[in-house]
C-alpha cells in the first residue's frame, strides 16, 4: 500500500527469502504461496538480483520455478535467479537444515511469509529459526521503509488498514503479511534460466511431532448459532425470529443542518471516531 520506492540495499545486506510450496485455494495445485511470493517481491525490490531464495523440500516442486520466474525487471546486469535447495522429504524437519544453511551463509535479512499453505502451516518456523539463530523477528510486515547496515525500518500491518513503524535490529527475520504489495508476475523465461543449487545436508530427521498426529482433510467449521439462554419460550422464540435491524437507534428529525452537524460530531467524538475537540472547534465556540 505504501511501499516506498527507491529503498534498495543491493548487496550491502545479504538478503534471503525463504520460500515454500503454495497451494491454490481452489484447485490445490502447487504454486507460489501468497505470502512467500510477497516476501520475494519485497526482497527483489530491496536487494535486486542479489536476493537468494532458500527452500527445503522437493526439488521437483512446481512452485520453485515460479519463484525463480520473478527475477525480472531488475537492474541491468542482474543475473538469473538463484535458489538454494535443501533436499528433504515431505515429513522432514526443515528447521535444523535451514538454520545450518543460514548460519553458513552471511545472510543478515531473511524474508518469508507468515505461514505455509501446505504441511503443518503453523507459522512457527520463522520463530523457531529466529530462536535457534538468536536473531530478532518481526511479523505482519507490510513494507520495508529503510535498511542500513544495522537496522531495518519496516511497517507492520495492523487491523483495519493501520500501520505501525518498527525498527528491527539486523540480523533478523521478517514475516511478510498478505497486505504487502502484490508480487510481480512470474515469467516463463526467467523461471527457465533460474539456477537451483542443491545443497547437500545431513539427512534431515523426520519431524518428531508428526508421528503422534492425525491428519485429516479440513472440515468445514461449524457455524456458530446464536443461542439465547432464556427460561421462557416466548423470549427464545422472539430472539430467534427478531429482525436484527431494529436495534433501537436514535433518529433525529427536523434539525437544521448546523444542529445536525453538531449532533453528528458530538456522536463521533463520544465514540472516539474523531479526536475529542479540535482547536478549530474550540475557537469556533
Amino acid at each position: 500500500m505504501t511501499q516506498p520506492d527507491n529503498v534498495t540495499v543491493g548487496a550491502a545486506v545479504k538478503t534471503v527469502a525463504l520460500v515454500s510450496s503454495g497451494r491454490h485455494p481452489v484447485s490445490g495445485r502447487a504454486g507460489r504461496a501468497r505470502e512467500d511470493a510477497r516476501a520475494v517481491e519485497m526482497g527483489l525490490s530491496l536487494s535486486g538480483g542479489t536476493l537468494t531464495l532458500l527452500h527445503a523440500g522437493d526439488a521437483d516442486d512446481a512452485a520453485l520455478p515460479e519463484y525463480l520466474g520473478m527475477y525480472h525487471g531488475l537492474s541491468a546486469g542482474a543475473g538469473p535467479g538463484r535458489l538454494d535447495l535443501l533436499p528433504m522429504a515431505p515429513d522432514g524437519d526443515a528447521l535444523p537444515a535451514l538454520a545450518a544453511r543460514l548460519r553458513q551463509s552471511d545472510a543478515r535479512l531473511v524474508l518469508t511469509g507468515q505461514r505455509a499453505e501446505c504441511g503443518e502451516g503453523s507459522g512457527m518456523l520463522p520463530y523457531l529459526l529466529a530462536e535457534t539463530l538468536g536473531w530478532s523477528i518481526a511479523t505482519g510486515i507490510a513494507a520495508i521503509e529503510q535498511c542500513d547496515g544495522d537496522h531495518v525500518t519496516v511497517l507492520q500491518a495492523l487491523p483495519q488498514g493501520q500501520r505501525r513503524r518498527l525498527e528491527v535490529a539486523l540480523p533478523c527475520l521478517l514475516a511478510v503479511d498478505g497486505v504487502a504489495p502484490a508480487p510481480r508476475q512470474s515469467a516463463f523465461g526467467p523461471a527457465r534460466r533460474g539456477i537451483t543449487d542443491s545443497v547437500a545436508t545431513a539427512a534431515p530427521a523426520a519431524d518428531p511431532g508428526w508421528a503422534a498426529w492425525q491428519w485429516q482433510p479440513a472440515r468445514a467449521r461449524p457455524k456458530r448459532l446464536k443461542v439465547v439462554k432464556s427460561t421462557n419460550a416466548r423470549d427464545r422464540f422472539k430472539a430467534a425470529a427478531a429482525k436484527s435491524a431494529a436495534s433501537g437507534g436514535q433518529v433525529l428529525t427536523d434539525l437544521a443542518p448546523d444542529e445536525a452537524a453538531d449532533r453528528l460530531l458530538a456522536y463521533l467524538r463520544s465514540e472516539k471516531v474523531l479526536a475529542p475537540v479540535s482547536d478549530a472547534e474550540g475557537a469556533d465556540q
Binding site: G28, C118, E120
Partner: peptide, 8 residues
C-alpha cells in the same frame, strides 16, 4: 494446517 488439512 494449510488450507486443506486439519491436524488432530
Amino acid at each position: 494446517a494449510g488450507d486443506r488439512q486439519d491436524i488432530q
